[in-house]
Nucleic acid binder design. Structure first.
Length: 107
DNA sequence: AATGTGACTACCC
DNA sequence: AGGGTAGCCACAT
């Protein structure tokens, strides 16, 4: 079984490892899922996540510390509310301080 | 096989 | 600082 039957599943599994109150970038998740450079693929996997799933997709943000969902969309506010409920702070410019909340890689 | 897409990134002005 | 651009990767047509 050298071939992965379901990349999405592997990505979701990695996302499930992000603890509450912390975030990871799409690039981080791609790297952790053994798909270095495939950050966009991570977004695609989250996009098709079944609603009602327990996977904490809201903890995945972009490398600029911003939410990638269109500002003003339902998804944007859902993500933001969930993060704030977990204690993740947003600056007045709607950015998250990665130094403080990003899950460190490696170590 | 070729082309188009995107919840991304790193660079370059 | 902020917007434009060109890579990038796996998928869908």
């Amino acid at each position: 079984m050298g071939k992965e039957p379901d990349i999405n599943h592997r990505i979701w599994q990695v996302v499930a490892l992000i603890p509450a109150g912390r975030v990871a970038t799409y690039g981080d998740v791609a790297h952790m899922a053994d798909l270095p450079g495939a950050a966009r693929r991570v977004g695609a996997a989250l996009r098709v996540l079944p609603s009602g799933s327990k996977v904490p997709w809201h903890r995945v943000i972009n490398a600029q510390g911003r939410l990638s969902l269109p500002e003003g969309s339902d998804g944007y506010y859902t993500q933001r509310e969930r993060l704030e409920a977990e204690g993740v702070l947003f600056s007045v410019k709607n950015t998250i301080n990665l130094r403080q909340f990003r899950l460190s890689r490696g170590r």
